[in-house]
C-alpha cells in the first residue's frame, strides 16, 4: 500500500516533467547531455566518445558530459540503462556486438537484455584486424595460417575479453578456416597489445585503431571488413584471402527503453549533426575508425540485423567457453 502510494507520488512529478519537456523542448538540448561509456577513458570506446565531445558544445551549444563506468566488459554501464530517465539527457554508448553476445553468454547474470539496448544512431565502427609484432616470423597472413595448421592449438592469439568482439572474430576465423588457435583473453585493448608486443603471444585480434597507433611496432596481416580500408590500402581483407569473415565492432548512441519516438529522433538528429562536423569525421578517420551513419528509425533495423547475425556466434561462444 505504502509502496503503491510512493510510486504514485513519485510518478506524478516525473510525468509532469516529462510533459513539460515534451512540450517546451523546442530547443533540445537545453542543458548538458550525459553519455555513459562502459569502458575506461583511453580505450577505443572511450576515444570514440571523446571525438564527439570535442565539437559537441560548438555544434549544440551545450556540454557533453562523459561518464566512464568501466566494468564487466561494458555491462556495468548497460545494466544501468533501464534506470535512466527517458528524457533524452541520459544516454549510453552502446557497443556491438558486445551487447548481443553478453546477454546470451551470461543469461540472468548479464544485468540487461538485448531489449534494453535501444540504439538511435550508429555513428562509428572499427574493423578488426589480426596482427603480429614487428619481430614476428609471420610476414603475411599465409605464414600465420600455415603455422596454425601445422601446430594446431599451439599458436597463441591474444584478444580482449571473453565473449567480446575479438573473441567473436577469433571464433569465426577458426570455424570458417577449420583452424585451431589458442585464444588468450586480456582485460583491455592496451593489455592485449602489450602482450603482443612483449612476445607473450604469437598473434592478436585487435582493431584498426591500434594499427594507426602502433603502426611501426606491430604488423597487421588481415582485416575482417567487407572491403579494404582507405587508410590501409595494402591490408588485404580476410574475404579476399578466401576466408569470408567480416567482424566490425560498431558504436551507437543509446537511449533508455521507453523513450518516446520524438525524443529518439531529436537525439539521433543532434548527434548526427555533431559527428558529421568535418573535423570530427576526419579525426575519426585518421584515428582508424570507420564513420557510419544509421539514424533512428533505421537504427532499429540495424539492431535486429546485428542481433540475428551474432546470435549464433553468441550461443557458440557461451557453449565453448
Amino acid at each position: 500500500m505504502v509502496r503503491f502510494k510512493n510510486k504514485v507520488i513519485l510518478t506524478i512529478p516525473v510525468f509532469l516533467t516529462a510533459l513539460l519537456i515534451s512540450n517546451i523542448a523546442v530547443a533540445y538540448p537545453e542543458k548538458s547531455v550525459q553519455l555513459t561509456v562502459g569502458f575506461g577513458p583511453g580505450g577505443p570506446s572511450g576515444i570514440a566518445a571523446r571525438f564527439m565531445q570535442k565539437r559537441f558544445s560548438a555544434v549544440t551549444g551545450q556540454d557533453l558530459v562523459i561518464i566512464n563506468k568501466p566494468g564487466a566488459g561494458g555491462a556495468k554501464a548497460w545494466a544501468q540503462i533501464k534506470k535512466d530517465k527517458p528524457d533524452g539527457y541520459q544516454l549510453t554508448l552502446l557497443n556491438f556486438p558486445h551487447t548481443v553476445l553478453q546477454p546470451i553468454a551470461r543469461g540472468a547474470n548479464a544485468g540487461y537484455t538485448y531489449e534494453d539496448i535501444q540504439p538511435v544512431l550508429y555513428y562509428t565502427s572499427v574493423p578488426q584486424v589480426i596482427a603480429v609484432r614487428k619481430e614476428s616470423p609471420f610476414k603475411t597472413f599465409e605464414d600465420l595460417l600455415m603455422a596454425i595448421k601445422k601446430n594446431p592449438g599451439k599458436i597463441t592469439i591474444a584478444g580482449t575479453g571473453i565473449g567480446g568482439s575479438n573473441h567473436s572474430a577469433f571464433y569465426k576465423l577458426n570455424t570458417v578456416g577449420k583452424l585451431k588457435g589458442a585464444y588468450v583473453p586480456f582485460k583491455d585493448t592496451s593489455s592485449t597489445i602489450g602482450a603482443l608486443k612483449s612476445g607473450a603471444t604469437d598473434a592478436a585480434w585487435t582493431f584498426t585503431t591500434q594499427g594507426v597507433k602502433d603502426g611501426d611496432s606491430i604488423r597487421m596481416l588481415a582485416i575482417a571488413s567487407e572491403k579494404r580500408m582507405p587508410l590501409f590500402p595494402d591490408l588485404p581483407t580476410l574475404t579476399e584471402l578466401g576466408f569470408p569473415v567480416v567482424d566490425v565492432a560498431s558504436w551507437a548512441i543509446g537511449v533508455p527503453p521507453g523513450t518516446s519516438a520524438k525524443i529518439r529522433e531529436q537525439v539521433s538528429k543532434m548527434f548526427q549533426k555533431v559527428v558529421s562536423d568535418p573535423s570530427v569525421a576526419s579525426d575519426m578517420e585518421n584515428g582508424g575508425y570507420l564513420p557510419i551513419s544509421i539514424p533512428y528509425p533505421e537504427s532499429d533495423v540495424e539492431k535486429a540485423r546485428l542481433g540475428s547475425s551474432y546470435g549464433a556466434v553468441g550461443v557458440a561462444l557461451s557453449k565453448k567457453n
Binding site: V14, Q34, V65
Partner: peptide, 12 residues
C-alpha cells in the same frame, strides 16, 4: 567540473 552528483527523484 561537470561531475554529476545524485539528483532527487522528488523533483521539488
Amino acid at each position: 567540473l561537470h561531475i554529476p552528483l545524485p539528483e532527487a527523484t522528488v523533483s521539488l
